[in-house]
Nucleic acid binder design. Structure first.
Lengths: 352, 352
DNA sequence: CTTCATTTTGGGAACGTTACCAGAGAGTAT
DNA sequence: ATACTCTCTGGTAACGTTCCCAAAATGAAG
């Protein structure tokens, strides 16, 4: 009896079957007030029996709200961003919304294209990791939005959620100090890139705060890939000045590269050289030794971004910039220096 | 001039401004035939100037097509499924569709809930990795769908896309044979699980086809986690009967565990023991040695699933079951047995 | 029994688009 | 000039809701 016309029943069918007007049926189904208990019960029973399902399209067209949220990230297949997406999706589901996901591949054109698609789909709002330099495309979007990730810094006037790099670096350096490593070498990203500048600046500030001369830290650079980390580590070890006992890498992939390099060079990690990463990617757990790292709150960035966006949609959000704390993940690539394994000329006795 | 009423312009505004009826404007904007070139040009110019954007909601309500596709996978944060999602998303974008993503967490209730959301959002179709045992929820969905992944086997009557396990195992065993490993030990998943049964059956068949007695292959089992793989490898080495020179694991995580175990046991990989994985997760690249593995065509499953779904939506798809080939990824955990490094009692000279 | 307040109901008008059909021109052949 | 075909156009009716307002029913108080 449910589908006489092989067409899914509309609210009009339900109203007719329940012997009420579509207005009353609508009220009953959206459990609004001012509908007699008897009518409501009637309508709900009929709807249940007919397998009625509200047409969300019509509802949206009328009310202007779609219950859909757009998410634009650089790459859904990247573990970090996948984790962010998962967080956003969980929170969206909790709030009864659905998530439209797009990957920009760090490409401004594609980003603009996705933004257009979002607007056309009439999403209620969007969470975006902006790629475009010119802020035009982002602002022009004309819908409630929350930015995520570090590139959000370029758009100071928009609310955003990111990880607290300063706090993360602080944890890292503190833990390194506890292990006796006061002057870790740094593996940074390519120069001129925002991420590198920020990481380096934060390390610098923290060193100053701890009374360490930042200029004494050896620095090498890579491009955030494993291979570049491997080569940077080799260069670092090759330096004559000072034996390297500890490396703090700006991301996990380079840290993994460093661990590989140490193995190739016949040095033990962590006994000879400690390695600390920054990111918290799952792959770090499978290295040997497991990569100790400062993990960014990827999933929380997604959930918090969605929470903020909800406020933005409701209009209750005044500008806010949320920085979520990183946390330390101990896995075994950090140790007190073990001088026994090193030839005398490589020993370094300044550690506490 | 674009937004006199601070409201986005509708097709009626455009039509009025262009001095034509909304019918003509609609035809021009959806570049339909039977509209004078002059009118079309006029309308398009005005639309451009006003920043007009078609309301996809209204369009969908009328036409019955939303241009949205649902994707339900177990976990968006899982690298394999993230890769599948990425493939689906790319193909969707290529076809001008948008992707609604949901994670079921291998939970039938959540899956049912997501399917309901999809129906309510009036998606044109869905790509699903089914979790529910009872086929009811899936069939009841009542929208065009394509299943992906191995669990699709349970729903023989629906079209599906999966990886060709048989072919993948064949490549793996062939390559192992080329390295002189004719009787690899097997690291399987938990008994009774579909995935294990299938993997084991395929290995069995291929051994028979190659003239090897399947019963001679040592077998251990784990639960697809790294730790279980580590323990299984230790048990394997501990077996008295026969020295193990090669392990074929049913997934990459267990293979990574095996590599960790070998290091702990003081055995060299690959010189003493070769390890072959199955999956192709990115983390395998960062192990030492890099994990050689048979990679499933994750991204292709997504793209092909979307391609099939498009046909299903158009009604041009008759039942099909697509199996996509796996490919071999050489990374360094495979080698010819190097007897020199082993104590005499562990040597095993039957290899070619 | 009236009056008034309150709850409940129904009828229409949106929302912005596309589908359909009939009519208006324009051009060509009889 | 008439008839006919063609291309183009405009009006109207959907699509399935929700929102608004007025009408009807109910109940309480005078």
């Amino acid at each position: 009896m449910a589908d006489r016309k092989s067409r899914s029943p509309t609210i009009i069918d339900i109203a007719a079957a329940a012997g009420v007007s579509k207005s009353t049926a609508a009220r009953a189904l959206s459990n609004a007030p001012n509908v007699a208990e008897a009518s409501r019960k009637r309508v709900l029973e009929i709807a249940e029996a007919y397998g009625y399902e509200r047409n969300h399209l019509a509802r949206s067209l009328r009310s202007g709200r779609t219950g859909m949220i757009g998410l634009v990230i650089p790459d859904l297949a990247n573990p970090f961003w996948a984790e962010v997406a998962r967080g956003a999706q969980d929170e969206a589901a909790r709030r009864g919304a659905s998530l439209l996901v797009f990957s920009s591949d760090w490409n401004a054109d594609r980003e603009a294209q996705h933004l257009r698609a979002l607007r056309q789909a009439r999403v209620d709002g969007a969470i975006i990791n902006p790629v475009a330099d010119g802020s035009d495309d982002i602002h022009r979007a004309g819908l409630p939005m929350v930015l995520i990730g570090s590139s959000a810094e370029r758009f100071a006037q928009l609310s955003s959620v990111g990880s607290n790099i300063a706090q993360g670096v602080a944890i890292g350096l503190n833990r390194l100090a506890e292990f006796g490593h006061l002057q870790p070498a740094l593996l940074l990203g390519p120069p001129n890139r925002l991420a590198r500048v920020r990481f380096q600046r934060v390390v610098h500030d923290h060193c100053v705060a701890r009374g360490i001369d930042p200029a004494t830290l050896p620095v090498e650079e890579g491009d955030y890939t494993v291979e570049s980390g491997r080569r940077a580590m080799i260069r670092l070890i090759g330096r004559a000045e000072q034996p390297v006992r500890c490396v703090f890498a700006a991301n996990d992939l380079m840290a993994l590269g460093a661990i590989l390099a140490l193995r190739d060079l016949g040095l033990r990690c962590p006994q000879d050289v400690s390695v600390l990463g920054f990111d918290g990617i799952p792959a770090g757990a499978y290295a040997a030794p497991g990569l100790t790292t400062v993990a960014k709150p990827a999933r929380a960035i997604g959930t918090e971004g969605m929470a903020l966006l909800t406020e933005a949609i409701d209009g209750t959000l005044d500008h806010r910039r949320v920085l979520l704390d990183c946390h330390f993940v101990e896995r075994g690539s950090l140790a007190r220096p073990d001088h026994a394994g090193l030839p005398p000329e490589m020993r370094n006795d300044h550690a506490a």
